[in-house]
Design a protein around this nucleic acid. Structure first.
Lengths: 199, 199, 199, 199
DNA sequence: AATGAATGAGGATTCATTCAT
DNA sequence: CATGAATGAATCCTCATTCAT
């Protein structure tokens, strides 16, 4: 009983994992259900046993990513508590691009850029992930401000938006240019600026 | 004779225009050749008269966009000569998102995010456009530097990368969040920072 | 033990009931085993415990209908003993169509019209039901004749066939026309005729 | 040009013809698009070149049947002008059943019985055919009445409904019973009745 | 240059049925 | 007796592309 459930859950999560990777690699629409199934080793119709549709799978892929993020199972910095942590946060993305030879982008942006109007649910899923990520940045700036270490005029949330944009912009730029220098340049100046807001 | 050529060129450019719009709206893979043909009013095999393949069309779409950009037929700021121009450059993108209710992204990033490894040529096309855009920013900062209005430590090219990242990151963020506030926040701080580099 | 059997018999009859309703509503081929199972609340392989195949289920559905008919559990007139009873028999079908807004037909004809050559067994099941129904009509006319109330030339069985055809034809006509007037017209004249045969 | 059109029209009508036959034989849902294509000799995607969907094909099959009926290309009696004609009309259906060993039914009822609520268009198509058929009967009775050969109390339209029901009911009965006797019995009495209305 | 019919591989999805537990 | 995961063929449909005229 338990063994069955474990095995079956494995099939399901294998499909999600394979889908995530393929989506990240080549985009959602370029990835066929068959390809996902082949990659995950699952049989043809297992797919529709576990997922209502390909769109439902996308939804579950994003949800699973969200859960991993929230349960801190991803190698990103979540609890940004120092300037070093913030730099590490930025460089996690830079280094990711280096590690994949700039052949990918942000997995959520990859999915997000292919969204059409009838995929509102998935857009909201991704939105929550963006929000979660932004919040971990916000918290840092709010913390600084609470400690009086930030200029009064600086809005912590706006600074988080600023960081997030730099990161997202850096990711797509690296993917297109096949090099991380522009990304690093942007991050470099972002950090200089942010530090200039301290007092 | 000439009239025929003109008409045919019109067919060709109609296809390119329709393809550009549809790619921008719903992505490349979600757009079928048939859909483009229906939208452009062209007949089925007109397509393969003018284009070798769908990939060739994508290539031509990007090239045509590039040419429009270079011949200044797009409503973006090309010759950034003042801080006002730079702000206008940023706000062009913010306002674009507002005008489309945040339902799109950067057309080139939209295409770029769907690229697979066998579409190297198209990647380079987009790269050139990114480069061209970055250069119009670089020129401004180089100009400032030449006039001694920029801190010595500031690298004009890196500043251009910084601006470009903010823009690209803002575009995808707006698309996902369906609002431009985060984008505007990022731009706001970017400008504050850049101005702080003057002397 | 007994409770278990009762429960399981309930599962079985739930499946049959759900199948009957869905077949009646949307036809046999348009109804999937999964849909029946969902509707009846039974688990996936309960089905193959109780039925050899979908065809076997159809067979059992028809058999169960037959049993209900024979054990007089359906609201039709079985024992037609008077002209009033005969009219009631006809109007039962007219009123059924009214009650379902003419969205169905005779459940057996619905199944029967979808039969292919390899479903001979089911055809015979339905045949028996048609026969049974016809017989309850025949008996009435035979009775009349025995009592000398019917013209000598009138063949009771042929009159039953006549009634049955009117009913079946009225059912499909109502379903297609979404109104019962033609059915009622046919019934009206049928009754006039039949009564004209008395003496 | 013309040859192409002719060939292509042939492909299209081949598909419609094959579909009609298969639908008639085994029902709509039991007939796959692939089967139709195989039977008609058309290639896989020709189907979707000519028809929007399987439902669209059904629609066209019924429409084509309607056109054949209206242009009198079917061996049914259209212009019923005498009692002999009416008998011929009835016996056309009886004989059809004999010719196919009672293995089919009315092609339109076959399609009609499988209809679901989202196929309203097709239901209306069939309705028009039923109406057309009924009208050719109505005209006969109206004609009789005009000539004063029909009892005043007899409503020509209702008599047409009566005939139509007998025919439809006879068709399904023959299909289920695999013999035409009950159908013939019903027709026999119908004709006796109708003739009794003359004066 | 233009038309649109034809091709056939591949897309997502559903089906009846079986199997392991 | 019950559960639901697994199977794989088949379903409807779309795609990019080519061909005949």
């Amino acid at each position: 009983m338990k063994a069955v459930q474990e095995r079956s859950q494995k099939t399901r999560s294998n499909i999600i994992q394979a889908a995530f990777d393929l989506f990240h690699e080549q985009g959602v629409n370029a990835t066929s259900v068959d390809e996902i199934l082949k990659e995950s080793g699952a049989g043809k119709s297992q797919f529709y046993h576990y997922f209502k549709s390909k769109d439902d799978l996308i939804h579950e892929v994003v949800k699973s990513f969200s859960e991993k993020l929230r349960s801190k199972k991803l190698p990103v910095k979540y609890d940004i508590e120092s300037w070093d942590d913030l730099e590490q946060w930025f460089y996690f993305f830079v280094n990711f691009q280096k590690s994949v030879h700039c052949e990918r982008g942000c997995p959520m942006a990859t999915i997000g850029y292919e969204l059409t109007n009838d995929q509102e649910l998935i857009r909201q899923d991704i939105n929550l992930i963006f929000e979660f990520t932004k919040n971990s940045l916000s918290r840092f700036f709010h913390g600084l401000k609470a400690k009086g270490k930030l200029k009064k005029s600086a809005d912590p949330d706006a600074l988080a938006d600023f960081c997030f944009s730099i990161m997202q912009g850096g990711m797509i730029t690296a993917k297109i240019k096949k090099e991380t220098t522009p990304f690093e340049n942007a991050v470099h100046h972002a950090i200089i600026y942010l530090k200039s807001l301290t007092r």
